[in-house]
Amino acid sequence: MTALLEVRGLSKSFRGLRAVSQVSFDVPQGEIVALIGPNGAGKTTCFNMIAGAFPPSDGTVRLGGRDITGLRADQICRAGIGRTFQIVKPFAGLTVHENVTVGALNAFADLADARAKAAEVLQLLGLWAKRDQPASSLTLPDRKRLEVARALGTGPQLLLLDEVMAGLRPTETDQMVAVFRQLNEKTGLTILLIEHVMRAVMALARRIVVLHHGETIAMGDPETVVRDPAVLDVYLGAEAL
């Protein structure tokens, strides 16, 4: 299986603080990979470098074989990576439908087509009934869904999800998991997610990468990783077994 996303030796220092150090992993085409680890492990920093929010200090990122290291966020989106923000960033003054249409305009030149695509995504994520509300009126779980909807609207090959399950009730988490499964199975969408909700991670991920203090401490299939002594020690705790 070929890797859609190849991360090699990715590192980031903020004024001498090494936030991410020599992280390497692959996200194979059509798979769902989870990036987990304790707070401050460097997960979001990794995401931000992949998505172009800031350039890495060192290392490379390739998408489908193309070097996208250090490109701007908009260029990376156009290259085929859609992302969500951990701290949601809705376009508060726009309606839900308009929010997603902005994303869909990345994939469709014509506004009518973009609006149709946005409608499709909104239905998928259960936001269609709220399409005409301003995004500012949404509850946090709905804002999380809106983040996902907007990123999906851009028509990505790879979707980066930064803690989209946080704050969701278990039933809502299961719904969201079902949506990603469906997308992954039907459209072959590749997903890389940061997640603390292990229920979602175990239900979705075929591979897990564990970060701690900016370094990769474990990598592999979920069953192996959650039994890894190092992972239990720094993150999951022995009771997770």
């Binding site: 998505a51 929010a53 701007r72 966020a73 908009d74 989106c77 156009r78 992302r83 923000f85 960033k89 809705p90 376009f91 508060a92 003054g93 726009l94 308009e98 249409t101 902005v102 994303g103 305009l105 990345n106 030149a109 506004l111 973009a114 907007r150 990123a151 609207g153 851009t154």
Partner: peptide, 24 residues
């Protein structure tokens, strides 16, 4: 009623999110 307008509104509301959606 055009792409330009939608993009401007997005930039007005949140520049970082706008950029992440492919807007230069």
């Amino acid at each position: 009623q055009s792409r330009v307008g939608y993009y401007w509104f997005a930039i007005r509301e949140d520049q970082e999110a706008a950029q992440a959606l492919g807007i230069n």
